[in-house]
Design a protein around this nucleic acid. Structure first.
Lengths: 204, 204
DNA sequence: TCATTCTTTAAACAAATGATTAAATCAGAC
DNA sequence: GTCTGATTTAATCATTTGTTTAAAGAATGA
């Protein structure tokens, strides 16, 4: 028997997964064709089914990893007992914006597929308990002073951070921005979002 | 020749358009099948091509109308010379939230399709000039006091208002919210968003 | 009523697409 | 080298899906 190769990024299996992530994330499940993925990966079409029984199985794997990237990248920040709420918001904004600059299609993809297939979220992800038991959430709750649902503040942080990427092409068109200009704006927001968040807190 | 019927909502043509809007908006262009639309409309499949030469032509029409609804519903507000910036934000939040409660799939649909097909936006829409020449934009520009790109404030308004609907299912899952609870939160935001916006302005 | 045109229907077509097969090729064990 | 199992390839299959066709039905005007 052939010894199992170490799964470097040069494995056929890894090439397929990388190509699948790219094509799925860009076009969504339905519009992505297995032939697109095979071509992107530079492999024979049949290998896709050889390594991952079906398009859907392959999708599930990529989807899971995308979700992880989108939701669980901030685990350590959320549980940091020492940093203040505003400091956490600064880290979240910084990390998300960096990640989204590199993966601008990720949020629309994730949010579309969650919308299409909400049950997959519930099964696989523990994001809910992760968040609710975090130091971050406790601080969020404290900051509301009982005057509003803490979800509002969470929505605001996410909205200020993620939304510009969701609406990227539209905003670039309206603002006559090149991708470079857009990225510059997004970098500016890394410092601004925690300040805006503070302003909001003061106004409560 | 048959006299042209008045295009009530009972016309076959209108039934197809309504069904198409529903199916396209929910599933996106690729995942929507012409047979889905025909069934939803309760008409024979061939009628779809009889009235609208192709799936894509039908899509373009629905897309245009969705875009109009998403972007141009606020024309009168934007050009109101009398109201203050904050008052405009209040109206925008109020109207958008009402519209989005009734059409929760609209933003993801519009933003996905703009992403997939950015050129369609440029041709058909005059949203850019509409916005840039509005009283609203002038007020936005004045409010920045030259300290930031006015686009930041626009992004914030949209992000605070639209994002919760984009991320709706995810937020409902994380917050253990029923649709009713979620709508209640959204209603609360109608008053809160202009206040938050004011807080942000004060902090500039 | 008859003729004409518009509308609707059932059936079929052609292309696209996910999946499978059978043979060829490769890599390692002996 | 030879054997064995894993990997890869080209070809093919079966289904889905957008579209078309030809005929039937309904409406309108003479």
């Amino acid at each position: 028997m052939a010894t199992k190769k170490a799964p470097t990024d040069e494995t056929t299996e890894e090439k397929i997964k990388a190509a699948a992530r790219k094509v799925f994330t860009k076009k969504g499940f339905s519009a992505a064709r297995t032939r697109d993925i095979a071509e992107e990966a530079g492999i024979n079409l049949a290998l896709l089914n050889y390594y991952f029984r079906s398009k859907e199985k392959l999708f599930d794997i990529v989807m899971m990893e995308n979700l992880q990237q989108f939701l669980l990248g901030l685990k350590s920040v959320l549980h940091d007992e020492k940093s203040s709420l505003t400091e956490k918001v600064a880290v979240i904004a910084e990390e998300y914006i960096n990640m989204l600059k590199a993966n601008p299609d990720l949020p629309v993809f994730v949010l579309t597929e969650i919308r299409t297939n909400p049950e997959k979220l519930a099964d696989t992800m523990k994001v809910k308990t992760l968040l609710l038991e975090s130091a971050f959430f406790k601080q969020l709750l404290a900051a509301t002073k009982g005057k509003m649902h803490p979800m509002h503040l969470l929505i605001n942080i996410m909205g200020l951070t993620v939304f510009p990427f969701v609406a990227g092409p539209l905003l670039q068109h309206v603002g006559s921005l090149k991708t470079e200009d857009f990225h510059k704006l997004m970098d500016e927001r890394k410092k601004m979002i925690p300040m805006w968040f503070d302003s909001i807190l003061k106004g409560i």
